[in-house]
Structure formats: structure tokens, C-alpha cells
Design a protein around this nucleic acid. Structure first.
Lengths: 188, 188
DNA sequence: GTCTATAAAGAGATAGAC
DNA sequence: GTCTATCTCTTTATAGAC
């Protein structure tokens, strides 16, 4: 145990992180089924057996790679709400986190990804519903959530030409009144 | 060649149709990768080799099973447009055609399904854009399309609780102003 | 025409050498 | 600790018996 950076643990941590990064990228691009342990290992420049050694199974590797950050806190009014949702359209550089993309890519075909998606979307619905008045707040919140889901799927995963080439602000500008309508507020 | 229903051709046609039906159901539920020729054959009560004999490959079977009806013609005003879109929310009985569901289930993970989805959505965008005025008609049409996509994915494929339990008319009622806003019309 | 048997390929996972 | 080699399983697809 030298008291410089301990090469053992530190190197291991970095290798794990490199593998996870490669896994995120491949899962996000290809989905669970078409991504192989071998391909992840190749991309991370390690031996396939090492991936298994570190993560135990492909399933577990996916579980860690597709982990998604919890949505930011709630307690906003309707205007702030819409602004925040539109802000998540960070088409800009890194787009969505690779982890979220990995989860979304497989959410229609992989049971565990589907469960994760339902949970994340459910939390977003809870969060939005808390800021919307009325009996139908939950349904409105669910619709706002799937509207954003549709835009994200169309843009990031299907890469529809019309959305890919439009500036983010333009999309946000057109979407804002549409989301506002779902909050049940009158047009201000 | 008797001149009653020729048993040969007719029986073959029916068997093909039974296989296609089973394939649609399984592809719609599980997606391309997790659906096996064996499972399709079992569901259709035929021999796996027969499926291959009739359709040549799993790819070709999917191509036929995931064929989707072309969208109905255009030429409507904005109001009719929104009404028509909301009408396609046929949550009622058969939901969407099994073929469309099969295509959508795999659109994020199967290259051919993705291409088919882009084509179908592209045609819908064309159709909608023709009825919307303004320079940004195509972007507006694309947003309307992905909004409906998000609702359908959330409802039919992810089966989000809030959408599953809501009556179709309620969803349509809340969604209408939101879609209207995307057409660029003033609220009437 | 229909099915049995099998070929061929690719995957995840594991045991043991170094 | 890392990798070589392999095991085992499952799949699509095919060839040939009946």
C-alpha cells in the first residue's frame, strides 16, 4: 500500500468506468439484445472475461449502464413547470445522458428496461401532478409526460429529419403553448 | 381441379393467414428479437419448418406481419385534422392494428422496423403539413405526429397506469387544445 | 407437401492456466 | 488479477426422409 494513488483500486475503478461508458454507448445505440459482451469489451479495450468478472452478467451490466438520474425536485407553478420540461429538451451537445438513452432504447422490448421506464415516468407524473390543480391532474401530468416522451423518441431515437434539423428553441417555442394547454391554465 | 373451393390453395391460404396472425401477436408483444419462429409455429399449431417453407426467413415473416395500413387521405382543415388524429386513439377494442403494434414495438431496436416507422411517420407528417399554413408547417406537423406517437407508446406499449385507466374520450378532451395549439390556429 | 434431424453460427457464462 | 480456451445453450436455416 503506497500512499500515492493506490494503483490497484484506482486502476480497477477506472477500468470499470471505461467498461460502463462503452456499455452505455452501445446499449443506447443498439439496445439490449443486439449489444454483446464481446462488443462492449472490444470498445472498452479489455478482455470479454473481465467484463463478466466485474459485472457478473449482461443483465447486471445493463442495470448499471441504464441507471438514470432522478428528476429534479418539484414545487413549481405551471409556468415554471413547462419551462423546466422544455429545458430538458437539451438537444444541444450531449443530448440526454447516455444512461437515459440506453434505458429508453430498450424500453419497448426488454422487460427490465420497461419496468425502469415506467418507474421513471411515474415519478415524473407524480412530480408534475403535484403542481397541477383539478381532479384530472394526474391524467394531465401523464399526457405532458408522454408528449415529452414522444418528442424525445422522435428526436433522439428515431432521428426524424424534421426534428433533427430544427433548432431546439424553435421546438420549444412551438411546444410551449401545447404543454401550457395541458396544464389547464388559460393562455396568459 | 374440382370446381368447389380447391382444398389445396384454400387450405394453404388459411394456414398462411393463421401463421401471420400468430406472428403479428407475438411480434407485437415481444418484439423482433425475443420472438422465435418456434413460438410462432407453436401458436399457429404448425411445424416450425412449415413457417420457414412458407415465408423463407424470420426477417421476411416480420416484414409481412408488421405491414401497416397507409394513413387515410388528407385535405382537411385544422379542426378536422385534430379530430381525425384524436379518432385514431382507438383505445376501444382492438386498439391499433396488430401490424402497427408489431412495427412500433420493434422500431427502437430493429433497423428494418425503424426504417418502416420513419416512413410511416414521414407520410403522416407530409399529410398533416399539407393542411397547416405557415413556414413552420412541417415542424408543427412533425410535433403533432410525435405527440400522438408518445401517447400511443405510453398507452399501448408501456401501458402507463394513468392512460390505461382513463376513458378514451377524456384523453381526447384534454389533448384537443394541445393539438390545436400546434396547428397554429387561435383557440376558437 | 409435411416433418425429422441436423447443420452452422453466435451468444453468455465458466474453469483453470499464467 | 487477467486472459485463454471451452462449455452449453439457443437460435435460424436446410437437407432429405416419408
Amino acid at each position: 500500500m503506497s500512499d500515492r494513488l493506490p494503483p490497484r483500486a484506482e486502476r480497477r475503478r477506472r477500468t470499470e468506468e471505461r467498461i460502463l461508458g462503452a456499455a452505455r454507448a452501445l446499449f443506447a445505440e443498439l439496445g439490449f439484445e443486439r449489444t454483446t459482451i464481446r462488443a462492449v469489451a472490444r470498445a472498452a479495450e479489455v478482455d470479454p472475461a473481465l467484463v463478466m468478472q466485474y459485472f457478473g452478467s449482461k443483465q447486471e451490466l445493463f442495470r448499471l449502464a441504464a441507471r438514470v438520474a432522478p428528476p429534479p425536485a418539484a414545487g413549481l407553478d405551471a409556468d415554471e413547470l413547462v419551462g423546466h420540461l422544455l429545458g430538458t429538451l437539451d438537444t444541444k451537445i450531449g443530448a440526454l445522458s447516455q444512461g437515459s438513452l440506453a434505458m429508453m432504447r430498450s424500453m419497448l422490448t426488454h422487460p427490465e428496461a420497461a419496468a425502469a421506464a415506467r418507474e421513471v415516468l411515474g415519478r415524473q407524473i407524480d412530480s408534475l401532478a403535484a403542481s397541477i390543480p383539478g381532479d384530472d391532474a394526474r391524467l394531465r401530468a401523464a399526457l405532458m409526460t408522454v408528449v415529452m416522451l414522444g418528442v424525445t423518441v422522435g428526436h433522439q431515437l428515431l432521428e426524424l429529419e424534421e426534428l433533427r434539423t430544427a433548432p431546439q428553441e424553435e421546438i420549444a417555442r412551438l411546444l410551449r403553448p401545447s404543454l401550457r394547454a395541458l396544464t389547464g391554465q388559460e393562455v396568459s
